[in-house]
Design a protein around this nucleic acid. Structure first.
Length: 300
DNA sequence: ATCCAGGCTCCTG
DNA sequence: CAGGAGCATGGA
């Protein structure tokens, strides 16, 4: 059953990106993986807003590096500010990056990346469940494959709607995945282990034991402890979720293969750095580990 | 073919 | 408690 979307109101306005933010740098990441829940085409980013945000469809048309023309199609009960808040959560627009750039522009490891990728921000997952799912799917496999699995999951368990002659998806809610058959997930080439992790995490969220709101109120150590208590969520996944969803500035996925390879390359090492060596290297970045990681991921 | 990807759990010794 | 097997698949 495909829902046909209807909206009675249209609002348009211009969103100016904060300092140290450039659309082309956001797009580098947004465009990196084919995501099912949004589309970038013809100079427009379009998506069906998540249920928690409200019943609306958003079009983002960049007119310069810093000005985004927004069109929101919605029903009366939804305010445009909710759509703006969603973008802010997605692209981490509220963090003041001035101290970061000032402190690390001459950092031997970060400096070149800050220059080359100036204007980037952590492009995250506002939805905690989505962040957890992609974190689990991304463990120990290549990123392209992980995103393909995510698409299959969205196709099978997400919500579908049609709007202006096209099909649109919303990422599945935990309740749907909690009831899924492991065998069905296996058919999608999700491993037995990961299928079990997904059901466990989905169940915890569906039963209200785990939520973004409650995590956001906890101090950093407790966020990590709560997440790693879940089966399938180890240190890397917890750090990843803290970084991409909870906006924890000190999140640092030291076990990350991409991060290790970036440091190996920058320091001309003949092997990847160990986790301990990475923590040592990261000491000057205290309080900014998440952004340090992000810029190293972006590359020089 | 072999090694490695945005790792984690569980089982050894 | 450190160390390692096993997991599943795809790309280089």
């Amino acid at each position: 059953m495909v829902m046909s979307l209807t909206f009675s109101h249209t609002d348009t306005w211009v969103l100016t990106l904060p300092p140290h933010t450039r659309w082309s740098q956001l797009l580098r990441w947004i465009d990196r993986h084919e995501a099912m829940v949004y589309r970038w085409a013809d100079g427009k980013l379009r998506l069906w807003l998540p249920r928690e945000v409200g019943e609306g469809f958003l079009e983002v048309t960049p007119t310069s590096e810093t000005d985004l023309h927004l069109s929101l199609f919605h029903r009366g009960e939804m305010a445009p500010s909710q759509a703006a808040f969603f973008l802010s959560e997605w692209w981490d627009l509220t963090r003041d990056l001035s101290p970061f750039y000032e402190s690390f522009q001459d950092d031997p490891l970060l400096g070149p990346s800050l220059q080359a990728s100036h204007g980037a921000r952590i492009v995250g997952f506002p939805d905690l469940f989505e962040a957890l799912v992609i974190g689990i799917l991304g463990q120990q496999v290549n990123v392209g494959f992980a995103y393909r699995l995510k698409q299959r999951l969205t196709d099978a368990y997400g919500h579908v709607g049609t709007w202006q002659g096209e099909r649109w998806w919303r990422f599945p809610q935990p309740e749907r995945i909690a009831e899924a058959d492991i065998s069905h997930l296996r058919e999608m080439q999700i491993s037995q282990r990961k299928a079990e992790y997904l059901l466990g995490v989905a169940g915890a969220m569906a039963e209200g034991q785990l939520s973004k709101a409650s995590l956001m109120m906890k101090p950093w150590e407790e966020q990590m402890a709560t997440l790693t208590a879940l089966r399938g969520i180890g240190n890397w996944t917890a750090q990843y979720v803290c970084m991409k969803c909870l906006h924890s500035p000190q999140a640092f996925p030291a076990g990350d293969a991409g991060l290790q390879n970036a440091v190996k390359r920058l320091l001309h090492m003949d092997r990847k750095p160990t986790v301990e060596e990475l923590y040592e290297l990261a000491q000057p970045w205290a309080g900014w580990e998440a952004y340090a990681t992000w810029f190293l991921w972006m590359g020089g």
